[in-house]
């Protein structure tokens, strides 16, 4: 058996993989938060609840309609994204003229409502979601056995994160989006329907959270608290990375997941708090965040 720093290789790599998976969720969620914040200037506290909703929609699709994992991976984000569009149009859009804090408070209330409703309907014990047959089993990588599903999650998250980055940074749609973030009235004067762009941005950010939720469903049991367990850590990730850069969110998310995984190997007691410790160090050394723009 390979030993690295006195730690058995498979244990180290196993925790690293777990860290990468957590990091994949941090990256997808903080990316969505950053995209929404850029356009709407609100922190979407309901992001965790919508992540959880994505997982539940996938579970319900399978349970009630027999729709499997892969179609759900497309359908659930569409459904939750549509829900997000309705939310933005009916409720959130009323707050744009107010202080940013009201957006945070409103979406916090929203997350209480969504989580409470799911808790009433499904209890809080958690529902199992089966890994699809094609991703069952594990692959021998030589230095460790990698469960196929976990590899798939990391891969899918990477693809989605970098597609989002490419859309925002490399396409004309993304250019419009970035321009509207900088100066909405001017973009509107050029004939772009900015309110619609804002609505669709919220929908897309929410769909991203739901996509992460479907990916998470077979790993963590589907339960109403799965979002709030994640979201507090994701906020720390956002503070560490700063919300200025898309690529920054992705790198920070994955990086912190890995740090968390390594901490589990070397000093397990601190694994729950290490992300927050990193946040404290970043606040002391570089308050605007690793990739944040100067205020």
């Amino acid at each position: 058996m390979i030993m690295i720093f006195g730690i058995p290789g498979p244990l180290l790599f196993g925790q690293l993989l777990l860290g990468l998976i957590n990091g994949a969720f941090y990256a997808m969620l903080s990316l969505g938060l950053a995209v929404i914040f850029g356009m709407l200037n609100i922190i979407n506290f309901a992001h965790g609840a919508l992540f959880m909703m994505g997982a539940f929609v996938a579970w319900i699709l399978l349970d009630a309609l027999g729709i499997g994992y892969f179609p759900s991976l497309i359908l659930a984000p569409l459904i939750v994204g549509a829900f997000g569009v309705v939310l933005e149009r009916t409720i959130i859009s009323r707050l744009y003229k107010l202080d940013h804090l009201y957006g945070l408070l409103l979406t916090f209330g929203l997350s209480l409502v969504i989580e409470g409703l799911f808790r009433n309907a499904y209890g809080s014990s958690g529902l199992p979601y089966r890994i699809p047959d094609i991703l069952q089993g594990a692959t021998n990588l030589g230095f460790m056995y990698m469960p196929n599903y976990r590899g798939w999650v990391v891969l899918a998250a990477l693809v989605v994160c970098f597609s989002t980055w490419a859309i925002i940074e490399k396409t004309s749609l993304g250019a419009t989006l970035r321009a509207a973030t900088e100066n909405a009235p001017l973009v509107q004067a050029f004939g772009v329907n900015v309110p619609r762009v804002v609505t669709l941005t919220y929908g897309a950010g929410v769909a991203l959270a739901a996509f992460a939720g479907v990916l998470a469903a077979p790993i963590y049991s589907v339960n109403p608290n799965m979002g709030s367990n994640f979201i507090n850590t994701v906020f720390a990730v956002v503070v560490i990375g700063g919300m200025g850069s898309i690529l920054g969110s992705i790198v920070t998310g994955f990086g912190l997941g890995v740090i968390e995984g390594l901490t589990k190997v070397f000093y397990p007691q601190a694994s729950a708090t290490v992300v927050f410790l990193v946040m404290i160090i970043v606040l002391l050394a570089r308050p605007r965040g690793l990739f944040g723009k100067a205020a």
Binding site: L101, T233, F235, A272, I280, L283
Partner: peptide, 28 residues
Amino acid sequence: YLAIRRSGIYFAMITLALAQMVYFFCLE
């Protein structure tokens, strides 16, 4: 001392995260 380095929305997120750390500390 840590949190007032940022204001507005970041202050809210930082205090939330720091409190979550206190929560995990109390759990352990």
